[in-house]
Design a protein around this nucleic acid. Structure first.
Lengths: 196, 196, 196, 196
DNA sequence: GATGAATGAGTGTTCATTCAT
DNA sequence: CATGAATGAACACTCATTCAT
């Protein structure tokens, strides 16, 4: 049943199917046929909307990044306390948002990271994402610490967040958000304590 | 010309070729034909030594884990200072050993992690590895801290080490080992300082 | 915005795009999408005007034949010298008209010839064309030679013209019209000389 | 039933199947699956022996050229009369050999010619072939005529031979070899008569 | 009159695996 | 021990065609 103006609908429909597919069988086995079947459309439609499979994967990764970015921004905008500590906690919170620590999200991010090692287009996206976390953190630490300390703290906290996330993803158990937050908040406080 | 005792030689030859292949083209494109060509042997021989492709991948991951484990053990055995701090630093050092932060090693680990989400055999290996790092760290922190603190510190340090490693791997630049060590040592000291 | 009387315009627009497409990428790769893009119209419109792809190809071949036929007729009508020799030269000239020895024309004719071996509709057209050249030549030779000689001369000259054209097309260089004309004119004179 | 040393057997088997397929359905429809089915082998084997479809087509065209070249050489070697006229007739004969004027051969040559317009590898082969006919003819004409005349005669005869062959191929009827030979021999004699 | 969304069969190609030699 | 011939399913992608709008 062809219609006009289907583009945004189909695109998000296919991106959702891609996330689902990567969650279910992994990126290597998430074939176009599999994704199309999940989306309930024909194989050919994917080329119609995303040129080729890489186009679809790229769009999917971009979508994940947007969701993450929005989660962080929303939390920071809602802050009443403008202190660096509050902002840093909000950034950390955003990275451990329920949307990011679900099984599917973790599997998909991990798959994209591995893929990005050999796909320049994904690599570019992934570095933008990495850099965004670092510079967000660095900006806040800078308000409390000298530049060198701020940079080291930002690098450390970014690594800690990613590492907690990664180990959670690989653990095979439900992500223990409270535990992760406690460890990350502790790091924030230890670093900020260097200020005075 | 059949020879006797070829098994260990062939096996390590094929594991090396697998690492090389994953480094060059990624796990998705590292076909048996590609690996066999790198190793200079015929396609068929892989089933002979490793049942099938998964067998080869599993053996390769096991090999990586052994190298990592040996690096850590060697460093700890060579310590003159038996303090928890020295041991923790040795463990950290082992994880940032040159063999672990090279391009090929990082690409391969990352690929295995992503794969492990959908391959139980790899997942089992990977969890053993994760747990080993945590329990090594926890054992040392325990000598200086109460149990709860030791556990949190071990979880944090394990995550920090993995996170530093991960962000280094994804950065696309040569791994800055000095920087990573500085951040991790700092974390060790901050945690041990809680001992009073 | 629908218009009336678009049919002839659209048809010739699509035929031109087909010639261009066959010239650029060959008949095998000249997909409907490619042709439609060249013509600046939607895919679907082709079925509207030409039933299907074969209909478009057939119409395109018919168009080429018309151009060729007109070129020959025009030259013969313009003759002041009504001799067989003059007419034969005019027919030859028409077959080496600039419109026929251009890269696109040669590629397209060749493609149609090859296709005609397996498409009855094209085959029919192509035989009409072949026969027209032969009977034009035969009619003129007949004015100077006995029937058997006229037929042989017409067959020879038709073959020579097609052969010169074919070898020119395949040579990969610009068509050397002067050389082709010299060789064909020479054949005309050698045959007419048999008249005594 | 895998065997060793199958390469030459399989290669010629697949080339034969390709000729048969092009004859039956044309080059455009001669898919790998179709060819493989004709040969009674699996699809995959074609990549095994010819890298890809183009490799198979190229090998097939090379085969056709070899058969043609051998036919001509054989006839010339068997000549008792060493005159240019005899050699020229032998070359002509070779080009109208039964192997060249059969339906399959004509369809295949025509398909290759059309394809060569857009496939450099085939184009190269085709030009070698064209040039070989011309230079064979030119070499013989040169023994009886001044250079300029010899060149023109060779160009004319090559075109005439190709043209007779082409029109025969497109006629849809069995090739009339006697008629073609008569016309070509006539041309040979008319050109040689210019010698004085 | 014209669009472009949608299909589904078909393409060339790759691949892990098997097995006779 | 080791080869490489062979398979057949799976892959991403293309395409002519249909049809609601």
């Amino acid at each position: 049943m062809p219609k006009v103006g289907m583009q945004p609908i189909r695109r998000s429909q296919l991106i959702s199917a891609t996330l689902e597919a990567v969650d279910q069988v992994g990126m290597g086995e998430a074939s176009i046929a599999y994704i199309a079947r999940l989306a309930g459309v024909s194989n050919g439609i994917i080329s119609h909307y995303f040129r080729d499979k890489n186009g679809l994967l790229e769009a999917t990764m971009r979508h994940l990044m947007q969701v993450l970015g929005q989660g962080v921004r929303r939390r920071r905008a809602a802050l009443k306390d403008p202190s660096p500590r509050a902002h840093l906690r909000a950034i950390v919170d955003g990275n451990f948002d329920a949307s990011q620590v679900s099984g599917p999200a973790m599997k998909t991010w991990l798959a994209f990271w591995a893929s990005s090692m050999h796909h320049p287009a994904l690599q570019r996206l992934q570095r933008i994402n990495d850099h965004r976390l670092y510079s967000n953190l660095c900006g806040e630490f800078r308000r409390a610490l000298p530049l060198a300390d701020a940079r080291a703290a930002a690098r450390g906290l970014a690594a800690l967040v990613d590492g907690l996330w990664l180990r959670g993803a690989l653990s095979g158990q439900a992500f223990d958000t409270q535990q992760a937050l406690r460890i990350a908040y502790d790091y924030v406080d230890l670093q900020l304590a260097k200020a005075g």
